[in-house]
Design a protein around this nucleic acid. Structure first.
Lengths: 196, 196
DNA sequence: TATAAAAACGATCATACGTTCGTATCTTGA
DNA sequence: TCAAGATACGAACGTATGATCGTTTTTATA
């Protein structure tokens, strides 16, 4: 036996990515074996290497892909908004929505950074920095226009990001709290916190 | 050769704990090998088993110890305070201070929960719940007395906890921001956020 | 001072890991 | 239609891992 009927490189790679997200999220990068991953999608371990360079490479691919998509989506969500207050509201709603929908990616993107080689890690951290800077810019502008009162923009931005990202660890889409209510609660907490 | 001169069970166990904290924090539980750990404290791998049951057991011991200490320290910090506003301030200051000082423990206590056996994990989660409940109680009392305006106490508690715990990922005690300023910024953000 | 317990060594076990490789089969484009 | 490339198999490699065990030396107790 060899090549399976109906096999296609694109579909297999997509399956590898999906299973990789699932397994790394559930057990961690180090704890996930390529044998596990291969079995999940009905492949022999060696066959994975037709689609990925190394295990490390797969991890970087997943995280990098997540960051790039995150940045692009943010720009789309904020596009055209000038008012800092509206921009902050939009940022909060976007961040929450996106992070609810991609809990796995977000979790991996932060908790498995240490498993990356230094060079790869630096690339990801740079992208994350760009994302943080976008929130900083909003806060700065709002302060300049006399809307917000913020002692330290970067520290506040980190605090807000931590708060918003925290939902990934507990939010259950099927639970007691609806998405709209979740956004409302966080919006009020943040806005009232930074308002003059 | 066999038992080393001056060796003592207590000291060795303490060294294992300390090195374990360091290595798990740096590389993750799965990625830390017992050979690494043993080498760090000048021991043969097999000798570790004079002091620990299993690798899993060491992890649970570290996390459990952290949670118990955290809870006890919190009660000490809040002891005697009745006013909800003062209690919230004290909670924020305590949480930040404690988490700055024990970044390793906190990180391990959250990111390595998944490496625990279900039974052990449940024990830790229960302790964490107790901690969260303490903050919930403060928020509830403050709302009852007409000080705070909070739509959902539990969600708000999670949001606040996430914000405060976030510092573990970026705060550098030797950096630009002093501890007092850090506490001030977060206190204002949270208080103004929940105030009526 | 005699003796049991504690603590470390060093060798070893079975297993699991990431990765490579030769080979076989399927798909696709000329 | 047929050759070239893509995809998968299955066996294998070297290495590392968590854990066990018999033995030896030190410490502490009585």
């Amino acid at each position: 036996m060899a090549r399976t009927a109906g096999s296609s490189g694109e579909k297999t790679l997509a399956a590898i990515r999906e299973a990789g997200l699932d397994l790394i999220h559930a057990h961690g990068y180090e704890a996930m074996s390529l044998r596990q991953l291969a079995a999940r999608i009905g492949l022999q371990p060696g066959s994975l290497y037709n689609h990925i360079e190394t295990k490390q490479d797969l991890l970087f691919d997943l995280i990098h892909n997540h960051m790039v998509t995150l940045l692009a989506s943010l720009e789309e969500a904020l596009g055209g908004i000038d008012d800092p207050l509206e921009a902050l509201k939009a940022f909060i709603a976007f961040h929450l929505t996106y992070h609810i929908e991609r809990k796995r990616e977000v979790f991996i993107g932060s908790s498995e950074l240490r498993s990356l080689a230094p060079k790869s890690r630096r690339k990801i951290v740079a992208l994350r920095r760009t994302y943080e800077d976008r929130l900083c810019a909003i806060l700065k502008q709002g302060t300049a226009r006399g809307l917000f009162k913020i002692e330290d923009v970067r520290v506040s931005a980190y605090a807000i990001l931590a708060m918003l990202t925290g939902i990934c660890t507990w939010y259950d889409a099927k639970g007691r709290i609806g998405r709209k209510k979740l956004i409302d609660i966080h919006t009020r907490l943040v806005l009232q916190g930074v308002m003059k």
